[in-house]
């Protein structure tokens, strides 16, 4: 009897913070789902250009990334200052592209292999020479779906 009576005092309790962990966890799960870990360190500077006609890359497992740009300050001594290709976590040349594509392909279910897209993340500062070589190499390897990574901007009038 006395146990229940005591709680009915007139003291207004402070705001309960018991739900705070739930709210924070909700935020946490949201960020865990929408973000992805940067698994590879970028060894080349990549600042993608802007474009308006963009297509979203839906299935992440069906995408392989090819980075092209000038080596970052950290790698300048080793790799020079000319634009280089980065595949996975290594500097590469166009000759390495077929093997890189093949390695990615092995991890993809056979029925989905024709929907593999190569995402080219290329710096604005690069000239088309190296891109042309990459394109030729992709074509020779039969990888014809290519996505030039770009940032969103409005369509010109």
């Amino acid at each position: 009897m006395s146990k229940f009576k005591k709680k009915q005092g007139n003291v207004t309790p402070g705001i309960s913070t018991a739900s705070l962990p739930d709210i924070v966890f909700m935020l946490l799960f949201f960020f865990m789902v929408v973000t992805k870990m940067r698994d590879t360190e970028l060894m080349v500077k990549v600042n993608t250009p802007q474009a308006s006609e963009l297509t979203k890359l839906e299935k992440k497992t069906l995408v392989n990334f090819i980075f092209v740009g000038r080596p970052t300050d950290k790698y300048k001594g080793k790799a020079g200052t000319k634009p280089r290709i980065q595949l996975g976590d290594k500097f590469a040349t166009t000759d390495d592209i077929p093997l890189f594509l093949e390695k990615h392909k092995v991890g993809v279910a056979e029925s989905q292999r024709q929907s593999i897209i190569s995402s080219l993340k290329v710096d604005v500062d690069v000239t088309m020479g190296i891109i042309g070589d990459v394109k030729t190499s992709l074509r020779k390897a039969g990888q014809l779906k290519v996505n030039y990574s770009a940032k969103k901007r409005e369509r010109t009038k």
Binding site: F31, V34, T35, K36, M37, R38, T48, A51, E53, L54, T55, K56, L57, K60, V63, I117, S119, L120, K135, L138, R139, Q143, L144, K145, V146, N147, Y148, S149, A150, K151, K152
Partner: peptide, 15 residues
């Protein structure tokens, strides 16, 4: 540690 994936781009089909 994470970056919001902004994977969009101009889709091209090579010959």
């Amino acid at each position: 540690t994470t970056t919001i994936a902004e994977d969009k781009g101009v889709l091209v089909k090579l010959p």
